[in-house]
Simulated assay, not measured.
Amino acid sequence: MSIELLDRGSLVDGGATSATEAVGSTEGLLGRIGNLETRLARNDREIDAAQAVRYRVFVEEMNAQIAPDAARRKRDVDAWDAVCDHLLVVDRSLEGDAEDQIVGTYRLLRHEVARAHGGFYSASEFAVNELMARHPGKRFMELGRSCVLPEYRTKRTVELLWQGCWAYALMHRADAMFGCGSFPGIRPEEHALALSFLHHNAVARGEWAVKALPELYREMDLMPVEAVNPRKALSAMPPLIKGYLRLGAMVGEGAVVDHAFNTTDVLIVLPISSISDRYRNYYGADAGRFAS
């Protein structure tokens, strides 16, 4: 489970300045809207604070099951935390130190780092290694563990997270992004309309095709195409998945039930070349230079 818990707002529906305009000359920032800023975590204290935010959302709100030691510490922690970069949304208007101001987070894992440390998180659910083998010259990056505190689930927070991801992708010259997008609950049939819409309209084909692992594969083709009302299907979809579709993303074939996190996952696949010029211009084509 990964990029699913931004319950309100849209990934790309207006309201934010471009990363170029937002950052200006302020060192280390990837974006700013009002009192909210996005940047990478600078130290272990900030990573710990991001893990505490994840615990509040995934465990206290969504009833995820985590290791007993992590539960005692009230932190959502796994082995990937040590090798990932942690994108933060910080509310500078809150009192306290920087780690007290973290209200949202995204975990970013680059291809070369994953290769050196045992692979990508999503590979435990989807055949991403086969996908990458078809693109030996391309750089992939994984987006994961996205969450935002309830009172900050607004359009501008989602905008900031995407600005940060876009700047990071440019800085590291990524060719494609992917990650698990999730529906709440472990019964795919409860999301038959949205999953069927994705199956009929957004499944990656050809060189970008990727499937759920055979032992975990759950059908997404739960309704015939003629029974799927696109407007209602999009309305029933988690906003972050819908936002990625607007950017030009595709989804893998087959869903996976994640019992530990109480979600039904699909794989989002977004080649950088598929992002329209409209959104490239919106977020700032040279945003990567502000992440240096």
Rank of each mutant, 00 (worst) to 15 (best):
V228G: 05
K74H: 10
H117C: 02
F178Y: 08
E151L: 13
A169W: 02
V256D: 03
I272N: 00
Y283N: 00
S124L: 10
P188E: 10
F290I: 10
D76N: 08
V257Y: 09
R187F: 13
E61N: 05
R246F: 01
L216H: 09
V53Q: 14
R218W: 07
I275W: 02
E130K: 14
N281C: 05
S10V: 05
A64E: 04
C180G: 00
A209S: 14
V103S: 03
D81V: 02
E215A: 15
I268Y: 01
E253H: 07
M220I: 09
T105Y: 06
W162V: 03
L161G: 00
M171Y: 10
H199D: 11
W166S: 00
D258L: 11
A123K: 07
L29D: 05
D78W: 07
A249R: 01
D97R: 14
A49I: 09
L40G: 04
Y244V: 09
R56K: 15
L108T: 15
S10N: 11
A64R: 13
V158Y: 02
A64C: 10
G164I: 01
S122G: 02
P271V: 00
R145T: 04
N229Q: 14
I268D: 00
S292G: 04
L234F: 01
A174H: 05
L234V: 13
G28M: 04
G179A: 11
P224A: 07
V53T: 06
T26R: 15
I268V: 15
T20E: 15
P184F: 01
G104D: 12
N63M: 13
G164D: 03
I272C: 02
L30D: 08
Y283H: 06
D85I: 02
E226M: 09
M223H: 07
V269W: 01
D286S: 11
D265Y: 07
